[in-house]
Amino acid sequence: MMRADFYLIAKPRFAGQPLLLVCELCRKANDAGLATLVLARDSAQAEELDDLLWSFNPDAFIPHQIAGSDEDEEEALVLIAAPGQQAGLRPLVINLRDAAWMEPCDRVLEVVPDDPAAREPLRERWRQYKAAGYTLNKYDM
């Protein structure tokens, strides 16, 4: 059964920098040994996340890289893909893009910014996942 988990940003720490929440989600996935695909909105966001994953927590080492940058990318537990970048399917997908992720995976995580304008498209996405038979969960972060 496929799952879609929506993470609603509320805490100031994440509101100012939503990618910090993405780093925390990547850390949890890494600790659980889950191969994760992060769908970045654009290449600038992919680069920012790549840098942040090195620095956000001095005690956390998360093997990660940007798709297409290296032949060994299958070894990185966290793979960051900008649009147009080929990346293999993985069991966990963190979707930062504007469209719902309907490709096969076990779980898709949607990060919902603390911005009313950004929430409406995500309500629509919730309906899309629901219509596709996903199990839905919502978490306040």
Rank of each mutant, 00 (worst) to 15 (best):
85 Q>F: 04
30 N>C: 14
66 I>Q: 14
15 A>W: 03
51 D>F: 09
95 N>M: 08
33 G>I: 08
18 P>C: 08
35 A>N: 06
59 D>I: 09
65 Q>G: 15
36 T>Q: 06
99 A>K: 09
20 L>C: 14
16 G>S: 06
67 A>S: 12
95 N>I: 09
22 V>M: 13
65 Q>F: 07
16 G>C: 07
32 A>S: 10
76 A>H: 01
61 F>R: 13
97 R>E: 13
90 R>H: 09
79 L>D: 08
15 A>E: 06
83 P>Q: 00
11 K>L: 12
32 A>W: 04
97 R>I: 07
11 K>A: 15
96 L>N: 06
30 N>Y: 12
35 A>E: 11
83 P>L: 01
28 K>P: 06
101 W>I: 09
30 N>V: 07
31 D>Y: 10
84 G>L: 04
66 I>H: 00
77 L>V: 02
59 D>Y: 12
63 P>S: 02
83 P>I: 04
91 P>S: 11
53 L>K: 05
12 P>K: 07
29 A>I: 06
86 Q>D: 14
71 E>G: 12
82 A>V: 04
30 N>M: 08
84 G>V: 00
23 C>V: 09
83 P>E: 02
48 E>T: 10
11 K>S: 15
8 L>D: 11
93 V>R: 10
8 L>S: 13
75 E>T: 10
91 P>N: 11
88 G>L: 09
72 D>F: 02
36 T>I: 14
74 E>R: 13
14 F>H: 02
59 D>P: 10
9 I>E: 02
82 A>E: 03
40 A>V: 09
92 L>V: 15
62 I>Q: 10
19 L>F: 02
44 A>I: 09
87 A>C: 03
49 L>C: 03
74 E>W: 07
60 A>I: 01
44 A>V: 07
82 A>F: 00
56 F>A: 01
9 I>N: 03
